[in-house]
């Protein structure tokens, strides 16, 4: 297993994908944070002041939007094997396909954690001096800001695992990436506003991510963060199990 982990880790670090996407993730996280701080207090913005705990948590939570990049990285890590047929030498050297997928899931989670840490750190690096310059103290622990950032990390890491599952299911790289993005940014918000099905919305992956960080979106009451976290972990495990099962059963292209 340690051999497979090393091999999968090398696959990540020997192409430019991982740091290109990391820059993208950090840019998106920074954008959310900057937009929230800059727009606070602007006329028509009803958000509580920057000194309030709710707003500080919300700013920290906005970095979680970087999960967009981690899910895409997860998808690309696996679909690139099928696209360039590196799946062949991979499964020739280790025909126990389940082990290969487990190694890939672990490495994807690791990449996700790195993305999460980088985005959370960047959030803190923007928030602390900026609010400090305005004479506002960030109460990291008391206001739950740190917890919100931990939520970012969890969301971003789990979505990388979800990406592996999606990529196993839909092996076509472009279809898998577009499908995942359309689901997260079009389909799921639609479900949220359609009366008949909106009751299921809080249990979907995107909504669970929102529950973890406390980022508010949509109509219905969110799950509490811990429940949301367990739910998203469940989604991650479901996709992972799905990816594992499909890889064992289907032919390798």
């Amino acid at each position: 297993m340690i051999h497979l982990l090393r091999a999968e880790w090398r696959k990540v670090t020997t192409t430019k994908l991982w740091w290109g996407m990391l820059l993208g993730a950090m840019a998106l996280a920074a954008l959310g944070v900057i937009a929230q701080i800059a727009s606070n207090g602007v006329r028509g913005n009803v958000t509580p002041p920057l000194s309030s705990a709710a707003t500080q948590r919300s700013i920290a939570a906005s970095a979680s939007s970087a999960y967009l990049f981690s899910v895409v990285v997860g998808i690309i890590l696996i679909t690139t094997e099928f696209r360039h047929f590196t799946s062949r030498p991979t499964f020739l050297i280790e025909p126990r396909r389940g082990l290969v997928i487990v190694a890939k899931l672990i490495v994807a989670a690791l990449v996700g954690i790195i993305y999460g840490v980088a985005c959370a750190a960047l959030t803190a690096a923007i928030m602390a001096p900026w609010l400090g310059a305005m004479g506002i103290t960030v109460h990291w622990v008391e206001n739950g800001v740190l917890l919100s950032m931990l939520g970012d990390l969890v969301v971003i890491a789990i979505f990388a695992v979800v990406g592996i599952g999606v990529g196993v299911l839909v092996r076509n790289q472009i279809a898998a990436v577009i499908g995942a993005l359309v689901y997260l940014f079009v389909l799921e918000p639609l479900i949220d506003i359609i009366p008949v099905v909106q009751n299921v919305y809080p249990y979907l992956p995107g909504a669970a991510a929102g529950a973890i960080t406390g980022a508010s979106r949509g109509n219905l009451a969110r799950l509490d963060p811990l429940l949301g976290g367990l739910l998203l972990l469940g989604w991650g495990l479901l996709f992972a199990a799905f990816g594992w099962l499909l890889t064992i059963r289907r032919d390798i292209p």
């Binding site: 020997t14 192409t15 062949r88 280790e94």
Partner: peptide, 30 residues
């Protein structure tokens, strides 16, 4: 199997952005 059988199925099993050496090192590790 990695030390028993060596196989090439069409000469296309490479990531285009990876160097030849790194490609081989990935599978050395595996």
């Amino acid at each position: 199997p990695g030390r028993t059988v060596g196989a090439v199925l069409e000469a296309t099993s490479f990531h285009p952005g990876r160097t030849a050496r790194n490609h081989l090192r990935v599978f050395c590790a595996a």
